[in-house]
Design a protein around this nucleic acid. Structure first.
Lengths: 242, 242
DNA sequence: TCGCCAAACTGGTCTATACCAGATTAGCGA
DNA sequence: TCGCTAATCTGGTATAGACCAGTTTGGCGA
């Protein structure tokens, strides 16, 4: 009731809080990966409550300008990684080339069999052997994606014995002479839910981008199916067609 | 305090509400474009408050399973439109081919000049003439995107005199003999903010997908630059590479 | 039957508060 | 100096209301 400076066409309070924070970021007062004032402080600064402060923060989060680290605070998002899913660049090389520091962790390697879902997308037959690989990848110590990779052991015998904390693309090329040719890519924005949200260390419901990629070698033989769950603010996709 | 059926590892209440709604949708009890129970009803059904009910709804919205219509209620999302930005399909044909009903409205046509931002992305020089076209496109009466199109009048003389409530791609081909060749596409998830949010009729902060496309003809001459703001649940992107 | 208006209903915004669990930090004791 | 503990701080979840501005609907009157 106290400080209604606004005229008739005033924006909602939470958008004004948003604007004030956005301005601080644009002016460079808040730089990438620095912590924002806590929700309680923000609420106090604007004579409002945490609920409203959180609305403003959620808005900026949806825009990809800030992100949250579980119970540690809100941070300014770094620039998006430019990602060209049609290229064979390795994640590590791509991240490094953009002046960032990549890291990869293998979460799990399991030999299994193709189910109906995978069979329909790869052309395999249900029951065909598959090596299922789960990895988490980071940029500058921030986990930005988890992935499920389904490898074809018929084309890649002994693949499960390798170490996967490096470029898979290099491994395929150097050890198996694979030249990837055909690729079908599909992607859409969606929220990350468990188990992927937990694996990345974010709350279920955090905005993400779901990307799948089916790769074949020069003979059209199925090599790998990749399913990536990205944080929505971590990347910008580029595709060039000629 | 009353109905804590949960053991020690119970999920938060808002996720249980989410699960119950998600199950109703999956079972087909709630079909695309039908209205969900109101927030107050949902809160009552689960012996909780609107705040918690809204958390559950926001979760499903982030997943792209439901959408909101301003002060009318929450509705089940229809399937995503499959969209291949590397193809020259017209929006109308693509939507029709998937059994849906498309519509296009021209919001604005303005002759103007290229600014630094557009010049950098198109190879034009600052000050070059441009025809700026704004359109809104719908699927089954739901607005799903707004777009800014920047046309090159040097390559397309008299372009501003046409009606744009139809396929631009057909217009270019039939009236100007344009065969689009080179294309640079960039996209990333972000929230829709004004003026795009208002133009689509959603609240600022609604999740979206930002897509830009720079098209050239067979001679490499710049034809059009397209900037699309999609609702995040309305589309699935597919790219095939060979 | 038709058109209008008021009531009822919807989500949008907001206050004020509470308790929890995990992360961080300050300080104390070995 | 080092390591541990306890206090403090953070966001996560939740309650219980309130008022507003559009949308829809029901009923009344012409």
């Amino acid at each position: 009731m106290q400080d209604r400076v606004d005229g008739e066409g005033a924006a909602p309070l939470y958008l004004r809080v948003r604007d004030q924070l956005a301005a601080r970021i644009e002016k460079g007062l808040l730089t990438p990966n620095t912590r924002l004032p806590s929700e309680r402080i923000l609420a106090e600064e604007h004579n409002t409550t945490r609920v409203t402060a959180r609305l403003a923060l959620a808005q900026l989060e949806a825009e990809g300008r800030i992100y949250r680290s579980n119970r540690r605070g809100w941070f300014v998002s770094p620039p998006r990684l430019i990602y060209k899913p049609t290229h064979d660049y390795s994640f590590s090389e791509n991240v490094t080339a953009q002046g960032r520091v990549p890291a990869t962790e293998t979460l799990d390697v399991t030999p299994t069999q193709a189910g109906t879902w995978l069979a329909a997308r790869t052309g395999l037959t249900v029951g065909d052997p598959i090596v299922w690989l789960r990895r988490r990848r980071q940029i500058d110590d921030r986990p930005v994606l988890v992935e499920n990779i389904y490898l074809n052991p018929k084309r890649l015998p002994g693949i499960e014995t390798y170490n996967f904390d490096r470029s898979l693309w290099k491994l395929l090329r150097e050890q198996y002479g694979v030249e990837l040719r055909g690729k079908q890519i599909e992607m859409y924005p969606t929220a990350l839910v468990d188990p992927q949200a937990s694996a990345i260390g974010v709350t279920a419901g955090t905005a993400g981008l779901y990307v799948t990629r089916c790769s074949r070698d020069a003979d059209g033989c199925f090599v790998e199916f990749d399913e990536e769950f990205w944080l929505h603010d971590a990347l910008s996709i580029q595709v060039d067609v000629s």
